[in-house]
Computed example of a mutant assay.
Amino acid sequence: MHVVPLKKQQAAIDDAIFFEKVDYVLTIPKNFSEMIEQNKQPDLTTQTKPNSFNKAYVDSIINTYLTTFQFYREAFPEKSSQEIVQLTTDNVKTKGKIKFDSSFALIKANRSAGKVFSVLAYTMFASIFSLITLINLSFNKPEIKRRNSCSPISNRKFSRQQFLVGFLFSIVVWGVFVSFAKLFSNIRFDQHGIYFILNTFLLLLVALSFSVFISGLISNMDMVSGINNVFILGSAFISGIFVPTEILPDIVTKVAAFTPSYWYAKNCSLIGKTVHFDANFSADFQFNALILLVFALLFFLLAMVTRRDRGGLKISFAKTA
């Protein structure tokens, strides 16, 4: 503390606080020592700016000193007041060293990395969906569709090539976003990094299958931004990616469980807070990953159904004679 002398007038005190000459004004009564000797609690008057953090900080220091002084008086009744003051002063001047556990820094870094990777549930998902859907809608234009129908390539083969190109394009987008996430999170290629990358690959499968499915349903490019805002961005909000799940109502969390972003974010949080990869972690991670795979498979099957009228992909277990 840096002690600043002030006049006793209230106006001088108010001016000193207003012009930030002082942060904390403490008024010690004249009978302070006598009250301490009589084991009474003295009434100390303080004055600070409204909502000042210094008030709580300095109040804590004063209370610590008085509590320590009272403890020594009760523990050593035979000592004089000067000796008690010396013991108290020596005690409050003692500085301790705090050493964090080795896993503390690791957990802190991995939790930050989990938050960075969880944002991919919107950025990467939306990018893959927007580009693949816009490309597929371009091929569905009547003039381009009629031109492709005149080619020697069958509709089924064309759909397979289109899906393969979309998959390769999604891999490129996935690599770019994972590189950016790794750069901003400073994650290493250790066990945590591998699990983060694996989790984003599962999200890639969901985004690709969802994009192929939706592109087979819509025919207007204006609907792409609507689905982006309603489903992808909306699911990111209710899944705890942009808004912490702790402040969301339970009904919102239950609704979010029907979206793939929720299970992706759960895996990001699970990886970030894990220090030792034990059987419990494996069980939780595999369960969340299985849910993501179910979403990807469901969207893929729906995409095949919607593309059947265009000679799309088809599952067949028997050959037709």
Rank of each mutant, 00 (worst) to 15 (best):
A236S: 15
I251M: 00
T259I: 00
F295P: 08
D190H: 03
P249Y: 04
L290H: 11
N288Y: 15
F242A: 14
L290E: 02
V255D: 05
S269Q: 15
G240V: 02
D250Q: 12
V294Q: 04
N280C: 04
F213H: 00
Q191L: 14
R188H: 12
Q286V: 04
A257D: 04
H192S: 14
D250S: 13
W263I: 04
R188D: 13
V294W: 10
F295C: 04
V206C: 11
H276G: 04
P260S: 10
E246C: 05
L198W: 03
L204V: 01
N199D: 05
S219Y: 11
V294T: 13
V243R: 09
I194T: 10
I187C: 01
L248F: 02
S239C: 12
V212C: 02
V275H: 13
A236I: 02
E246Q: 14
T245I: 14
I241E: 10
L198R: 09
P260K: 08
I187F: 08
I241P: 03
I194D: 03
V275A: 12
S282C: 01
N228C: 01
L292P: 11
V243F: 14
N267E: 06
L217M: 14
S211A: 15
T200R: 09
L292E: 07
F210W: 02
D250Y: 01
C268V: 01
F281H: 12
A289I: 02
A283F: 13
V275W: 09
F189S: 07
N199E: 03
L248M: 15
L270Q: 01
A236H: 04
V243D: 08
L290P: 02
D278R: 06
I214E: 03
L217G: 08
F210L: 06
L204Q: 00
F196P: 08
L204W: 06
G234V: 10
F196G: 04
I247A: 00
L290R: 09
V243L: 15
F237K: 08
I218C: 01
I197T: 14
